[in-house]
Design a protein around this nucleic acid. Structure first.
Length: 433
RNA sequence: GGAGAGAUGGCUGAGUGGUCGAAAGCGCUCCCCUGCUAAGGGAGUAAGGGUGAUUAAGCCCUUCGAGGGUUCGAAUCCCUCUCUCUCCGCCA
């Protein structure tokens, strides 16, 4: 949620900022509603004040002191006020409910350093790291390699459940598990994150807190059986919600959490995209970094978090580039986002493997997550950030495609080998050479 | 799944219809005293919002798990829900 005071006091600034995203703000509707809200609120509060004062008088009369002659008349007057109060209150609640709902649909403001643009084609490449490998044979994509290794089966998954799932077996199932442990260990031991294990189901409030609801319901899997539970689309939701309703002491910040979870996405609206392979699935594994920080440090925290995600790619010797998303491509809740794109020889292009965002106080307002220096200070909103480090399925695909040889062997990056029994290659049949 | 108890400010905890936004303690802040330290004394200390001159004082409204109800008036009475704890059952 963006700052309502800013909205009330500097509407044109908000409208102009959101226009950078291509978001059109109906400011005349808003101004009208807001004016009505104001009038109703003043009226409502005045009626309440009258009632409170009158009730106090009645109390004084009844408890002995005072003129009991006026009692009946006073109580009658208060009953009339109560009636008017009820009417006014209903009107006020209705309009306030509408405004609340509207606020939840407003995206975050874009940071000044984010370039203007309408879509992904206008994202800015910040840097490139590593060289795409040169093959003297036709590079296979990960689907073909998976087939060759006989360890990746989409047909089986579709019999079990349907399209956009995969079954991994043998060396590839092990590779995925190795990657998860590898990433977690680095973030904990080298980058100083606290490992957390969290629920994979969350309620509506949590999803509103991080911004997936109410706008993006279509992208979520909802559990039919219970009132308001959803499968998590990312660990961002349960992990960031650890900060909900909390007031952090200054010494506790920054909080840096890392979690591995499966992620479930309906992928509504992506029909026809990435139909083949592990790039876009209903279920995938991800290691997620979350940072809770004071406002003055969130800018640096974004650079740091991005560097931590990059560290994984470097250690895995995967070529990638860092993209600064333009205003039109930046996500709903984010003020600034870096995407990491890994080179996929099978597709002959860079593809997103991580997305690192600074939400500033947008999620904090929805979550009611605050901090303060001393117990008598006024609490302020924290800033929240998160980033994938990394999407595991895509990392697995990238390793297969970048590190294949003509015979279909996959060389294992040096630093990953301890997680795979120190073998230097993956080969078919689950064996090693 | 069954039975019972509970949910109050940063924390512990009192409060069963009116002067309670809430005793007391802890914590924290400031001041005084004590030549250090320890101890002692005093004052202050919930959040959100409206109005005000957009960041003042003042005035006002809301909030005692959430939602509804009774009443002139609800932390307090009634209903529904959520969560926590204890015991029993079941279970990885």
């Amino acid at each position: 949620m963006i700052d309502i005071k800013l909205l009330r006091n500097d509407l044109s600034k908000v409208v102009a900022n959101l226009a950078r995203r291509g978001f059109s703000f109906d400011s005349s509707w808003y101004a009208e509603q807001e004016e009505r809200r104001k009038v109703l609120q003043i009226r409502l509060e005045d009626l309440r004040r009258q009632r409170n004062e009158g009730s106090k008088t009645v109390g004084q009369i009844k408890s002995g002191g005072g003129d009991s002659a006026g009692l009946a008349a006073e109580m009658e007057r208060l009953t009339r006020i109560d009636h008017e109060l009820e009417v006014t209150q209903n009107e006020f609640r209705k309009i306030e409910g509408e405004l609340e709902a509207f606020y939840l649909t407003l995206p975050n403001l874009i940071e000044a350093s984010v370039p203007d643009g309408v879509d992904a084609t206008q994202n800015i490449e910040i840097r490139r790291v590593g060289e795409p490998p040169q093959f003297n044979f036709q590079a296979r994509d990960h689907v073909a390699i998976g087939e060759l290794l006989a360890c990746m089966d989409f047909a089986e998954a579709s019999r079990i459940v349907g399209a956009r799932f995969v079954v991994l077996k043998g060396v590839l199932a092990q590779l995925q598990r190795a990657l998860i442990n590898f990433m977690m260990d680095i973030h904990v031991a080298e980058h100083g994150y606290e490992e957390v294990y969290v629920p994979h189901l969350v309620n509506q409030d949590s999803l509103i807190g991080t911004g997936q609801l109410p706008k993006f319901e279509a992208e979520l899997f909802k559990i039919d059986k219970t009132a308001d539970w959803y499968l998590i689309p990312t660990a961002e939701v349960p992990v960031t919600n650890l900060a909900r309703d909390r007031i952090f002491r200054i010494g506790e910040l920054p909080k840096r959490w890392v979690a591995h979870t499966p992620c479930y996405r309906s992928e509504a609206g992506s029909y026809g995209k990435d139909l083949k392979g592990m790039i876009r699935q209903h279920q995938f594994e991800k290691v997620e970094l979350v940072t809770i920080t004071t406002p003055d440090h969130s800018g640096d925290a974004l650079e740091m978090l991005t560097a931590h995600a990059e560290a994984i790619l470097k250690k895995l010797e995967l070529p990638y580039r860092v993209m600064l998303l333009c205003s039109g491509d930046t996500g709903f809740a984010s003020t600034k986002t870096y995407d990491l794109e890994v080179w996929l020889p099978g597709q002959n292009q860079y593809r997103e493997i991580s997305s690192c965002s600074n939400f500033r106080d947008f999620q904090a307002r929805r979550l009611h997550a605050r901090w303060r220096t001393r117990s008598q200070d006024k609490p302020e909103w924290v800033h929240t950030l998160n980033g994938s480090a990394l999407a595991v399925g895509r990392t697995l695909a990238a390793l297969l495609e970048n590190r294949q040889d003509e015979g279909g062997r996959i060389s294992i990056p040096e630093l990953l080998r301890p997680y795979l029994g120190d073998r230097p290659h993956l080969v078919a049949d689950g064996g090693h050479d």
